[in-house]
């Protein structure tokens, strides 16, 4: 498995949001994209999932050019996204939300119980809430549900968009612990975060994104100790 973004450009109308970004995610890695609001992090994830059209450049997955593949088919290839704001189906129960994650799997009936077990082990809280409407969960629980739902599709790579957003510190630590756990179970992770401290501690490699450009690429541990990065992303007051 290898996700490779080459010279990607994406536009919103006439505004260029991504200005020639190249990113590589190798099998088994946790790679993080960090950057301020509006740097283009979410746009990159949406483009990988096929929600935004590519203006130029390419995205390949397992050597396959994703440009020709529709958004809903990319899930079948093994790309799942946990969207910004979680994207829980509010009127559906927790169980229904999880089932939606498997919508297109050919073997969904046989896999269902096994995968539900796996997800309830990762997120015991969800098991207590199976028949509760998704919209009534707390922010942290919704994040868990969104991650569990994405895992139902048995992804090869999981795209996580700001999983820590709006959560209490304890819940943030919990979520990041689970991200590492998921990675250890063999799922490659591309993590977009404003919480650079946590992201850099968990990730193997990192890219720093500024207004649509990658300005730095390095091992995550190196960036944690980089004075310029500390100043811009890890200083007091910065998230």
């Amino acid at each position: 498995m290898r996700l490779e973004i080459k010279d990607l450009r994406v536009h919103y109308g006439k505004i260029e949001a991504i200005k020639g970004v190249s990113v590589v995610v190798n099998e088994g890695e946790i790679v993080t994209l960090i950057g301020a609001n509006g740097a283009g992090k979410t746009t990159i994830l949406k483009t990988i999932s096929g929600l935004r059209p590519v203006s130029s450049g390419s995205i390949s997955f397992d050597g396959q050019d994703l440009n020709k593949i529709q958004a809903h088919e990319r899930v079948d290839l093994g790309i799942s996204q946990v969207p910004e704001g979680r994207g829980i189906f509010a009127g559906m129960t927790v169980l229904e939300n999880l089932e939606m994650g498997k919508f297109n799997r050919k073997d969904r009936k046989n896999e269902m119980d096994e995968d539900l077990d796996r997800i309830y082990t990762l997120f015991p809280r969800l098991k207590e809430r199976t028949s509760q409407a998704g919209g009534t969960l707390s922010g942290g629980e919704q994040q868990m549900l969104a991650m569990g739902r994405a895992l139902m599709a048995r992804p090869k790579v999981l795209l996580l968009d700001e999983p820590s957003m709006g959560l209490a510190p304890q819940m943030i630590a919990n979520i990041f612990r689970i991200i590492t756990e998921i990675n250890k179970q063999g799922v490659t992770i591309l993590l977009v975060e404003q919480n650079a401290q946590q992201a850099l501690q968990r990730a193997h490699r990192a890219y720093i994104l500024e207004t649509g450009n990658v300005t730095k690429e390095a091992k995550a541990s190196d960036l944690l100790n980089d004075p310029a990065v500390r100043e811009a992303y890890l200083g007091t007051g910065a998230h």
Binding site: A71, P83, G87, M92, G101
Partner: peptide, 18 residues
């Protein structure tokens, strides 16, 4: 359920493979 998902959010429905 796919109909309900799309009516809630087209983008999120796509992410489910719908």
């Amino acid at each position: 359920k796919a109909i309900r998902a799309v009516s809630l959010s087209e983008e999120n429905a796509k992410l489910m493979g719908i």
